[in-house]
Design a protein around this nucleic acid. Structure first.
Length: 561
RNA sequence: GCGCCCGUAGCUCAGUUGGAUAGAGCAUUUGCCUUCUAAGCAAAGGGCCGCCCGUUCGAAUCGGGCCGGGCGCGCCA
């Protein structure tokens, strides 16, 4: 029996046992188990068993009994049902504990059977079909192409990429998309800033454009521009050539940074292309036909308050240009039209106020509100030597993702970004991270992988041909590993459900800890070929799960450290 | 003023839909390398889980009210 089946069978057995317990008390069991939402999970404390449930305490109100008494009643019924079930060989014993917990202890045989499942499924171990092949569009980073990616984008990139991996693993069909804001005021400012620096190179003095981008990367772009065109555009009034040149270069850098950070995108979606297709006007017309567009103060408004927003929003300004919202609605409509059933956007905290209007737009377009969700990833506040580093693309003060990678490396950076909840503000002290980098927790997990690899390398020379006998694995350290291995599929699905990659990371730390502890106390390569063979299988399973988990997080798997 | 997020060990943070004795890393202290990698292991110290009420068998977790920090409230993007 594989891991997933176990949980569902246990839960249906429990449901029956609760029902018959209620019946025996003369209460008609109207309450279904799913209504009282009992928890079936692994307790923290080993002495509380491998699996624990609070169902007796949840249901004791209905039973009108003391929770512990009711727990014992359920236990008796459960034991009877168990005798006739497949789970008979998986559960060693059942215990009740005050104030009303029912604890299950798994048999060694069941724990051993997990190894076979891991060996059989390998890189697919933990994979699951709960996503049902639903098409999901995941849009993330989508930073304006007006400057290099910063640390804030780095966090969003790491989160989006891992989330995409995790959801794919859970059976969703994920498309990773980057929305390029390649038109509008910001882009013109970019072009102006480049032009200024270009002219400056020829000694032409002008006033630096208001709101111009002050970062040094603008000068670099201007130099490259000069190398290519020399004096050709020194008198031009047209910004177009500067704009295209700058846009291309910045976008190229962004793509390279993301690639080096291990982040993959399937689609780069240009806002300009969207507009040229006429979809923006069509979307406004579409909303108009639905009666949600009106004219006021020379502007055109979207009646978003009809769908839960706190005020209506302008889509066409009085000068006839669109606001940012208009193409954005069109863009999301386009995603639906491309066949996605769910849209997930990852935004920074400065956009949280934008969620109600986007949700309103989705509803107005006629799609279920829940089909769209925006995840807010909190900022990473950067410190250097204990002092806040202020970040502003405009002022040219920022630490780029590239600099971060150069200073601490891809794996450490990704680990730091993923080890916190999305909603957690993240303090990031570069000096501390660099100082600690040899002690960084990411190495703890990677080191376990490297150690296993080393064992496997040694074992090859010895040609262990014995048969794998899992019964030889009976040390506490070995059983601990087995218990933790068993939890991996669950960790992945919780991580997908809650959309928190850090759950997997936490899990991997537990697994690595159990392995390191085992490694220090027991030897894998021993004089007994049978024991050696069995332990080789065990550590190989640890390796597989570490690889699967780190793979989802986009962290590399060193064979040597 | 309104909205969103946060407040847990000296520091940075975990804590799955409320569960049993609140955890990890760093820092401090003490042991452990003749055997598969010491980037490791074993152990110690360190906490009114911001404060106050409430909900219930049971609260770091849920609700209300304060206090403190971050961000957002445009015909900007």
């Amino acid at each position: 029996m594989h891991y997933g089946a176990f949980e569902s069978q246990l839960s249906s057995l429990l449901e029956k046992a609760v029902a018959s317990s209620l019946t025996s008390l003369g209460i008609h069991p109207l309450t279904r188990l799913s209504d009282i939402k009992p928890e079936i999970d692994s307790p923290k404390e080993r002495t509380h068993g491998d699996i624990s449930t609070n169902v007796a305490m949840k249901a004791c109100g209905t039973a009108g009994k003391d929770p512990l008494y009711f727990a014992n009643l359920i236990k008796d019924n459960l034991e009877k049902a168990l005798a006739a079930s497949h789970l008979k060989n998986a559960i060693e014993r059942i215990e009740t504990r005050s104030p009303g917990f029912i604890n299950f202890f798994l048999t060694k045989d069941y724990l051993y059977s997990g190894l076979l499942e891991i060996i059989r499924r390998k890189h697919n171990f933990g994979r699951n079909a709960i996503g049902g092949g639903i098409k999901v569009n995941l849009e993330f980073v989508s930073a304006n192409p007006t400057g290099p990616l910063t640390i804030a984008h780095g966090r969003q990139a790491a989160v989006g990429d891992s989330l995409a991996n995790i959801l794919e693993f859970l059976g969703y069909r994920i498309l990773r998309e980057y929305y390029i804001n390649d038109e509008g005021v910001q882009i013109d400012i970019l072009a102006n800033s480049i032009k200024f620096r270009y002219l400056e190179l020829f000694g032409v003095n002008q006033k630096f454009p208001d709101d111009g981008y002050k970062g040094s990367y603008i000068s670099e772009i201007a130099s490259a521009f000069k190398n290519k065109y020399e004096r050709k555009f020194i008198d031009t009034k047209d910004l177009k050539v500067f704009r295209e040149f700058g846009l291309n270069r910045i976008l190229q850098d962004i793509k390279k940074d993301l690639k080096d950070f291990g982040v993959k995108f399937d689609i780069w979606y240009s806002q300009r292309t969207l507009r040229k297709s006429g979809k923006v006007e069509k979307t406004i017309q579409f909303l108009k036909r639905k009666g949600r567009i009106y004219q006021k103060d020379d502007a055109v408004w979207f009646e978003s308050t009809a769908f839960g927003d706190d005020k209506d929003r302008v889509v066409l300004k009085s000068d006839d240009t669109t606001t940012y919202l208009a193409p954005d609605i069109a863009y999301h409509l386009d995603k639906y039209r491309r066949g996605f059933k769910r849209l997930v956007d990852i935004w920074g905290p400065d956009h949280h106020g934008y969620i109600p209007r986007m949700k309103a737009a989705v509803k107005a377009l006629g799609y279920p509100q829940d089909s769209f969700s925006a995840l807010i990833v909190q900022l990473a506040t950067l410190y250097r030597a204990g002092r806040v580093v202020s970040m502003s693309t405009r002022a040219g003060e920022f630490v780029t993702l590239r600099e971060l990678m150069a200073e601490v490396g891809k794996d450490v950076a990704r680990f730091c970004f993923l080890s916190r909840r999305l909603s957690s503000h993240l303090d990031f002290d570069l000096d501390v991270i660099k100082k600690e980098s040899s002690e960084n927790p990411v190495y703890y997990i990677q080191y376990a992988h490297a150690r296993i690899w080393s064992i496997l390398e040694h074992s090859k020379k010895a040609h262990y041909s014995a048969r794998f006998d899992s019964k030889l694995l009976r040390e506490e350290e070995e059983l601990d590993i087995l218990r933790i291995l068993r939890r991996f599929p669950q960790a992945v699905s919780i991580s997908g459900k809650t959309q928190e990659p850090n759950i997997i990371l936490q899990y991997l730390q537990d697994l690595a800890a159990a392995f390191h502890s085992f490694y220090t106390k027991r030897r894998v390569l021993t004089d007994s070929v049978h024991l050696t063979k069995s332990r080789l299988v065990l550590v190989d399973c640890v390796r597989i799960v570490l690889a699967n988990g780190l793979g989802l997080l986009g962290i590399s798997l060193p064979k040597k450290m």
